[in-house]
Computed example of a mutant assay.
Amino acid sequence: MTAWQKLNYDICALRQTRREVRNRWKCVLEELGFQREVDSLLSVTKLSTISDSKNTRKAREMLLKLAEETSIFPASWELSERYLIVVDRLITLDAAEEFFRMASRTYPKKYGVPGLADGQKELPCLPVPSP
């Protein structure tokens, strides 16, 4: 494999991982009722900022909690500012804690979770029954 082929492969793998992470977030947001807003909530550009500097610490803590206690991110994933901004938006909407609960149910950290088919890496996005 040439250096260019390896680089191309690495870029494709990174893009695929990013799509998977985005789809996981999209799945949880849709389950929380943000079907119409999901794309705008996940849309982050160079001009996007934290809405309130007071939320920065809370957003960072929530993002770390998501990374440590769920499988919404792959194990080797480096947390990015993109999802810090998304969590900030969820805090502003008072939906961050509910997002964490839903992500914990949909993407539990435990491996070997019953219901996983052979070769399946995660649970499919399924509706969570109402209490």
Score class of each variant (00 low, 15 high):
82 R>S: 09
74 P>Y: 14
71 S>K: 12
67 A>N: 10
42 L>H: 05
107 Y>Q: 02
60 R>V: 09
22 R>G: 00
125 C>L: 09
50 I>S: 08
60 R>N: 03
121 K>N: 06
54 K>R: 15
73 F>K: 05
67 A>W: 13
96 A>C: 10
62 M>I: 13
33 G>M: 00
119 G>N: 10
70 T>D: 03
25 W>Q: 02
81 E>S: 13
96 A>S: 11
58 K>M: 11
85 I>M: 07
97 E>K: 15
80 S>Y: 03
86 V>I: 15
24 R>S: 06
82 R>P: 00
4 W>R: 13
91 I>E: 02
128 V>S: 03
118 D>Q: 11
95 A>Y: 01
90 L>E: 01
34 F>I: 01
87 V>L: 15
117 A>S: 08
93 L>W: 00
122 E>M: 14
38 V>E: 00
127 P>A: 10
20 E>C: 11
39 D>G: 00
131 P>C: 09
15 R>F: 12
66 L>F: 13
7 L>H: 13
83 Y>V: 05
103 A>S: 03
32 L>F: 01
77 W>E: 10
123 L>F: 09
11 I>T: 07
112 G>K: 08
58 K>V: 15
103 A>C: 02
3 A>G: 12
81 E>Y: 12
38 V>S: 02
64 L>W: 11
131 P>D: 06
70 T>H: 08
45 T>N: 03
97 E>N: 08
109 K>I: 15
62 M>Q: 13
129 P>C: 03
11 I>E: 10
8 N>A: 14
69 E>P: 02
42 L>F: 01
120 Q>P: 04
107 Y>G: 01
100 F>R: 08
22 R>W: 09
95 A>M: 15
74 P>N: 04
45 T>L: 00
83 Y>E: 14
59 A>W: 06
60 R>T: 14
48 S>Y: 08
61 E>W: 08
120 Q>M: 14
61 E>N: 13
73 F>A: 05
24 R>T: 09
109 K>M: 12
86 V>D: 01
30 E>M: 15
3 A>N: 11
84 L>C: 02
64 L>R: 12
11 I>N: 06
102 M>S: 03
127 P>M: 02
98 E>G: 00
11 I>S: 05
90 L>I: 01
103 A>E: 04
40 S>H: 07
84 L>D: 02
18 R>T: 04
126 L>T: 07
124 P>K: 07
129 P>A: 14
78 E>P: 03
